[in-house]
Design a protein around this nucleic acid. Structure first.
Lengths: 234, 234
DNA sequence: GTCAAAATAGACACTATTGTCTAAAACGTC
DNA sequence: GACGTTTTAGACAATAGTGTCTATTTTGAC
C-alpha cells in the first residue's frame, strides 16, 4: 500500500488534489486486484469498487485495461526501486560488528523491499505475466534484482579488500546472500502471507550466520555457537 | 510434457487409438495452457485445440473447468513427487567425494524436479492460484518441498554423525542448500526459460562449494580454489 | 455564485467464454 | 458386419467482461 506522504505524487501543475487522489486510489486498488487475480482474472468493475470510483473514471485516466496494468507495474517498480536505493545506502561504512550489520541490513531489505506488499506484487506478477510483457519487466530485471545484486557485490568487494571477507566471485556471493535470506521466507511469501518481524529477523540471522561461515576470513570469528533460533516455517 | 510419444500423438491429430491417450492429451495440454495463461486466462477451447480434441470430449472427462484444473495439478504433483522420491534414493550411501556427490545430486534434483516443465508449472501455479486453492496446494507444500526438506535434512544428519559435516540445525541446512542451488537459477526460471545443462551444473557447483565452505568439517578440505565458473545469468 | 473540468450512474453493443445439447461419425470389440 | 461406446462438430443459452456513450451531478477554482 502507498505511503500517505507520497500524496505529493506530482502530476501536471494544474491538477487538483481530488484528481490526484483518484489516480492513486485507482493505482492502489488495481495493484491489489491484479495481484490477487492476475491480469486476466481481474475485472475493471472489481477495481472500480475497490477504489471507490466509477468504472468510467478509470477509463478517463487509462485508455484500456492493459494501459492500467502497465501503469500499475511501473508505479510499483518505481516505488520499490526508490525504497531499494535508500536502503542500499544504509549499510555502515565502518562496520562495527559485521554479523549484526549484515543481519540488520538483510532485515531492512526484506522488510521494505523484498517481502512487503510491493515486493510480493512484483514477484507474483513477474512470475505470472512476465512472459507476456517481457519489455515491461525487463526494467525490473535490470533495476530491481540487478541493482541489488551489483550493490551487494560492491559491498562484498569492499569488505573483501578490507580483509573481513574472503571470496572469489562477488556477484555470486551477492546472489547467494539473497538466496540464503529468502531460504526461510519463500514458503511464507509463496502463499501471499507476510512474514512477521520475528520471522524476518530469524531468517536474516540464519542467512548471515551461514554466509559468514562460508565467506568470512578465519581472523573474523563468528558469534559462538549459541543455540540457533529454529525458524518454524510451517 | 509427459513423454515424447504423446507429443507425436498430438501432432497426428485425429488418428488416436486409445481413449486413455485422450485423457493424457487433455491433461498435458491443460497443464501447458494453465501454466501459460493462468486459470482465469486459460480457455477450454484453447486447451481443446492444443490437445487435438473436441471441447465436448473435455467435458466428458471433467465436469467443469475447475475439475480439470485440480486434476491437472494433482497429476503434475504425483508425477513430480514420484520423480522426487526416486531421486532422493540416488544419493550414495558411502560417498566417495562429497563435493562431487552433492553436486551431481543437486543437478539431478533441479533437472528432473525443480526446474523441469512440471516444476515450473507447480511453482507458477502455486504462486498465482495458491491463495484460491489452499487445500489443493497443501499437499504440494507437505509432500513437495516438505519431503525434499526432511529427506535432505536426514541426509545431512547422517553426514554430520559421520563426521563429514558440522551443523546445528539440519532442517535449516536443507532449506539453505536448496536456496543456494536456486540462487543462480531463479532468474532464469522466473521468466519461464529452462536452464541449460551447463547452467544447472554451474549452479550446483557454486551452491555446493559455498555450502561446504559453511558446513564441512575442517578435516574435509574443499577442492582447491580453482577459478570458479561464473554463472552468467542475464 | 459561476463555470469548466471531472466524476458518476446507467444503458449499450460487442466479444469471449462456459457449459449443454443433439445428431452424425469414428472406433473397438465381438 | 453389428453394436455399444466414445468422439466430434456445431448450434445454443447464459453469463461476464470490455470499452463506449450520454445525461446528470459533483467538485474545485475564480
Amino acid at each position: 500500500m502507498r505511503n500517505p506522504k507520497e500524496a505529493a505524487h506530482k502530476a501536471t501543475g494544474h491538477t487538483q488534489r481530488g484528481q490526484c487522489s483518484k489516480r492513486l486510489s485507482i493505482l492502489d486498488a488495481a495493484a491489489e486486484v491484479f495481484c490477487r487475480q492476475g491480469f486476466a482474472g481481474a475485472s475493471i468493475d472489481e477495481i472500480a469498487v475497490e477504489a471507490c470510483v466509477s468504472r468510467q473514471t478509470i477509463y478517463n485516466h487509462y485508455r484500456e485495461k492493459e494501459t492500467l496494468f502497465t501503469a500499475v507495474v511501473e508505479d510499483v517498480m518505481n516505488r520499490t526501486n526508490a525504497s531499494l536505493f535508500s536502503i542500499l545506502a544504509t549499510f555502515p561504512d565502518k562496520p562495527g560488528n559485521l554479523e549484526d550489520d549484515l543481519s540488520a541490513f538483510a532485515v531492512r531489505l526484506t522488510k521494505n523491499c523484498l517481502c512487503n506488499q510491493d515486493g510480493q506484487f512484483l514477484r507474483k506478477l513477474v512470475q505470472s505475466e512476465g512472459e507476456r510483457y517481457p519489455q515491461l519487466f525487463e526494467g525490473w530485471r535490470k533495476h530491481g534484482p540487478g541493482k541489488i545484486g551489483t550493490a551487494l557485490a560492491a559491498l562484498f568487494a569492499r569488505l573483501s579488500y578490507g580483509g573481513v571477507l574472503q571470496m572469489e566471485d562477488f556477484d555470486l556471493a551477492a546472489r547467494q546472500f539473497l538466496a540464503l535470506v529468502n531460504a526461510d521466507l519463500q514458503m511464507i511469501t509463496l502463499f501471499g502471507e507476510s512474514p512477521t518481524d520475528e520471522q524476518l529477523e530469524s531468517a536474516a540471522h540464519n542467512a548471515v550466520r551461514t554466509f559468514l561461515r562460508a565467506y568470512s576470513t578465519p581472523a573474523t570469528p563468528l558469534s559462538a555457537a549459541t543455540p540457533l533460533l529454529k525458524a518454524t516455517v510451517g
